[in-house]
Computed example of a mutant assay.
Amino acid sequence: MTLEFLVEDGECRTLEQYLRREKQISRRLLVRLKHTPGGICCNGAPIRTVDLVKPGDHIVLTEPETGAGAVVPAAQPVPVAGETAHYVVYDKPPGMPVHPSQGHHQDTLANVFAAGYPGLPFRPVYRLDRDTSGLCLAAKSAYCAAFLQGKIQKRYLALVCGRLTQGGTITAPIGREEGSVIRRCVRPDGKPAVTHYTPLSWNEAYTLVSLTLETGRTHQIRVHMASIGFPLAGDDLYGGSTRTYSRHMLHCTAVTFPDPETGQTVHLTSPFADAPLL
């Protein structure tokens, strides 16, 4: 993967200062580039990171090959909501894991990525549970993955059991439940977790809720909504009814982030096709 930057107006600074402060190049990637022949060039010639850069300089970074690992390429019809040379945003269907695991070696989003981008390692910027559908962003380079950390805003839609008519904020720490490797729960010694929720529509059995997160704990939405008495429909792990739905009804419906190349805001959406009450 090749990255190109044109140095714009600014104070005198070294190449390392420019790349670290203005382009969010991680220290780890910068070290790798320094040890790669031709990894860092300025105006067509190699340059040291301690050298000064000036407006108009053309910087080219060539990332070293890392290999794609042992993920088996397996093409599947997963829609793409947005794509550039730096990232791809999949509209993941429910039932598809993001990463391979026991019993899931060729039916994951990682397999789909390996089929679409041979030779590139799979770098999802965030993870969705297997049964959570919706937008999942994967970086095509180490630079993009580092650049996007902490800069992505996501909005979810969930169908919860019961009639919920008022919104609010859940601030409750989440940790692993004693004796379980899967279940999480609200516990005083857990990690801080904050969820904002707004009911959109409801009937006597279910409520469609919009949610945004300030943190990204495992099962956060599922645990928090269950903790206030409104578990997700179909989520039998946390007390949700499976009478109508066979999977937990959660969907990543919108993502907003800065484009790693232009800095412009990217906003993508995906409808929650499986949910009623829309």
Rank of each mutant, 00 (worst) to 15 (best):
I182K: 11
V209W: 05
Y206Q: 11
T195Q: 07
V194W: 07
C185I: 04
E204Y: 08
R184G: 11
L200E: 14
C185Q: 15
A205D: 13
V186A: 00
K191V: 04
W202F: 13
Y197N: 02
C185S: 14
T198Y: 11
L208F: 14
P192Q: 00
P192I: 01
S201N: 15
A193I: 06
P188W: 09
G179L: 12
T207M: 13
E177M: 12
W202R: 07
A205I: 02
E177Q: 15
R184P: 03
V186N: 02
T195H: 06
E177A: 12
V186K: 05
G190N: 08
V209M: 07
A193N: 02
H196R: 12
N203T: 02
G190P: 03
T198D: 08
D189G: 04
D189K: 10
E204S: 15
S201M: 07
R184T: 06
R184C: 07
G179W: 10
L200P: 00
L208T: 09
C185A: 07
G190S: 13
L208W: 10
E204N: 11
G190K: 01
G179Q: 12
L208V: 08
T207Q: 08
C185V: 14
S180W: 10
V194E: 12
D189L: 11
R187W: 00
T198H: 12
S180R: 14
V209T: 06
Y197G: 03
E178D: 08
Y206N: 05
N203M: 07
P199E: 09
T198G: 03
H196I: 01
L200C: 03
R187Y: 00
L208E: 10
I182S: 09
N203H: 01
L208N: 09
V194M: 06
D189Y: 08
S210K: 04
V181G: 05
E178K: 09
P188K: 13
S201F: 09
E204H: 06
V194Y: 03
K191C: 01
Y206E: 07
N203S: 12
A205E: 13
E204C: 08
R184E: 12
V209C: 13
I182V: 15
K191P: 00
R183N: 03
S180E: 05
L200N: 09
G190L: 04
T198L: 13
A205G: 01
N203D: 15
C185R: 15
W202T: 02
V209R: 05
E204K: 12
V181K: 10
I182T: 14
R183A: 06
K191H: 14
T195E: 05
S180Y: 10
P192N: 04
E204R: 15
Y197A: 04
E178A: 11
V194Q: 10
D189C: 09
L208C: 08
P192W: 06
A193G: 01
P199N: 04
T207D: 10
S201A: 15
K191S: 08
Y197K: 05
R187D: 00
S180P: 09
